[in-house]
Write a protein that binds this DNA or RNA. Structure first.
Length: 207
DNA sequence: CGGAAGATCCACT
DNA sequence: GTGGATCTTCCGA
């Protein structure tokens, strides 16, 4: 744990770096969701970087620009939330400069605060282990009550922020190919998935 | 304008 | 391990 408060909000500069760097740096950080004065917190354990135009798996591949992905082109430090498979939302953190379209998908976290409310948001009858509340991109959004209403929000203050948390050292980070992007040709094998090494709550295949 | 597929999750075998 | 749910978005015709 670091010297200052684990809930100190990460500054804009944190996001103005290449997506893979931010993806690594986000591990161990706290994602803080405020809803009606209450605070829900998860510690991030798994992320994926998406590079933008050169990355076939990215929603910004080849400069693709549609109303849905508009917030992906904001400057680093904003949220990009999209709806997928007819029933799930996924939360991304935009990285780099505006108009680039690079981002980090938040794939999994473990509950730090507000587990009871997260379980209710998930529709679970009981409160499971902390890692089972947000162990997947869709679950993470559902647990934290995130949907398209949060698309485009600044992460520097307000209902959705990222804070210092409990960052891990570089040696503790594992990387590998991203999940669910087999269609993306050459980009499918790029090692842009990052997780806290050996963490029990990675979403699916182990790294 | 229609068809196809998707950065997922869960129940069931 | 496999398949179904469910619907928005995109691309080709």
């Amino acid at each position: 744990m670091s010297a200052s408060s684990p809930f100190k909000v990460l500054p804009a500069d944190f996001y103005r770096r290449p997506a893979p760097e931010v993806a690594r740096a986000l591990l161990g950080r706290y994602l803080v969701r405020r809803v009606e004065g209450r605070r829900l917190v998860v510690r991030l354990v798994e992320t994926e970087a998406y590079l933008g135009a050169p990355d076939r798996a990215s929603h910004a591949w080849n400069g693709r620009r549609t109303p849905r992905v508009e917030s992906l082109y904001l400057t680093g430090g904003h949220a990009y939330v999209y709806f997928i498979y007819g029933m799930h939302y996924c939360l991304n953190v935009v990285t780099g400069e505006a108009q680039v379209g690079s981002a980090v998908l938040l794939r999994a976290g473990e509950a730090v605060e507000g587990g009871g409310e997260m379980a209710r948001n998930r529709g679970l009858a009981r409160v499971p282990r902390p890692g089972d509340l947000a162990g997947g991109p869709g679950k993470l959004c559902k647990a934290l009550a995130i949907d398209r209403a949060q698309d485009g929000l600044s992460l520097l203050a307000g209902e959705l922020t990222l804070t210092q948390g409990d960052p891990v050292a570089g040696y503790a980070v594992a990387s590998g190919p991203r999940i669910g992007v087999a269609y993306a040709k050459e980009a499918a094998t790029w090692p842009l998935r990052f997780a806290i090494q050996g963490h029990p709550q990675m979403s699916r295949p182990k790294l």
